[in-house]
């Protein structure tokens, strides 16, 4: 009863204007505290944000360029560092590759890819069944990306995102989570240039995944007349079951990927499921200016990116 009387008296003493004033003071104090928190990076996730590099140039600088060419005696750290710095090892690149899928259930098992790249931001390429006309082609002049579907006589035009136009500007402002979960910042052109060979020419995302898992150098080889080292990457789940197995042939001078094999349980872990092999590659050729200019054929129709996507090739 005594407690009840105290509570009643306490409620009677509450003045609405005073309550409003206190809440306002508290809100201002809370916002000020947040500003201090952010400015001085006092939070756990903010502290993490200040540590890891988050753009491709920062990530590359963080991995010192090894002595090249790499050899079979090189460390995996050296291979990873060269891959992370691979964009500094060539200016232009022209390549042709064959992708083969080892699955008898499929009608089309072999595809060919052509790509021509000029850093930074220019590129063109195409993709087709082996021996057939191109099913899909694309061109980028560094500002605009055109995608072309020759068989449907349609193309779409997409402005490259502002942050993608320069390598230095692309990247997040902080890591994704405060508890330091593993993350990958792929090379912007790997995600934007629509080609099987984009992640070969810009292997930064794969190199970051190699940094965070167990990989080993298992041999050396020659691919497209270039010396390579072979890297085996395997991922196991929490119960120790193999869930991913890949092999990559890395150019010993440039860090570019020249061949890969993807294994799957469905094909048996000892047989590759998909293999992409670069059959020809030339670095630092001079391309004519028209190489990266788009000119539509007279019978081609421009469609929106969404309409182009809905007319996507579904093999």
């Amino acid at each position: 009863m005594k407690r009840f009387n105290v509570l009643t008296r306490w409620i009677q003493q509450i003045e609405p204007s005073r309550v409003k004033k206190d809440i306002l003071i508290g809100a201002i104090a809370g916002i000020t505290l947040t500003a201090i928190f952010i400015t001085f990076q006092l939070g756990g996730w903010q502290t993490v944000a200040a540590e890891p590099p988050l753009t491709i140039p920062e990530i590359a600088r963080n991995a010192s360029l090894p002595k090249t060419p790499l050899t079979i005696e090189s460390s995996t750290e050296d291979v990873i560092a060269l891959m992370l710095n691979s964009h500094t090892q060539w200016h232009t690149l022209q390549a042709h590759a064959i992708t083969t899928i080892n699955n008898q259930q499929l009608d089309d098992n072999s595809w060919q890819t052509n790509i021509e790249l000029e850093q930074y931001g220019k590129g063109r390429g195409d993709y087709s069944r082996v021996g057939n006309e191109s099913d899909f082609a694309w061109v980028s002049d560094g500002n605009t990306l055109w995608k072309v579907k020759p068989t449907a006589n349609v193309y779409s035009e997409i402005s490259l995102p502002e942050d993608v136009k320069t390598l230095e500007n692309y990247g997040p402002t902080s890591p994704p989570t405060e508890d330091n979960q593993a993350f990958i910042v792929i090379h912007p052109l790997d995600g934007v240039f629509p080609s099987m060979l984009s992640s070969f020419a810009f292997p930064h995302g794969l190199a970051q995944s190699f940094q965070q898992q167990v990989v080993e150098i298992v041999g050396s080889d020659i691919v497209a007349e270039r010396d390579t080292v072979i890297v085996l990457s395997q991922v196991f789940d929490d119960e120790g079951n193999l869930v991913k197995k890949h092999e990559y042939w890395i150019d010993t001078d440039t860090g570019v990927i020249l061949k890969n094999r993807v294994y799957a349980e469905s094909s048996g872990w000892d047989k590759w499921y998909e293999q992409t092999t670069v059959t020809e590659i030339v670095y630092d050729v001079t391309f004519p200016a028209r190489t990266f200019q788009f000119k539509s054929e007279h019978n081609m129709r421009q469609v929106s990116p969404d309409d182009f996507d809905s007319a996507r090739i579904n093999q």
């Binding site: 995102p161 942050d163 993608v164 692309y170 990247g171 997040p172 994704p176 989570t177 979960q181 593993a182 993350f183 990958i184 910042v185 792929i186 912007p188 995600g191 992640s199 995302g205 794969l206 995944s209 965070q212 898992q213 991922v235 869930v243 991913k244 890949h246 993807v262």
Partner: peptide, 13 residues
Amino acid sequence: ESYANYWVYLGNF
């Protein structure tokens, strides 16, 4: 296929 248990950055707008 290339990644397992990673956050992959997709860009901003």
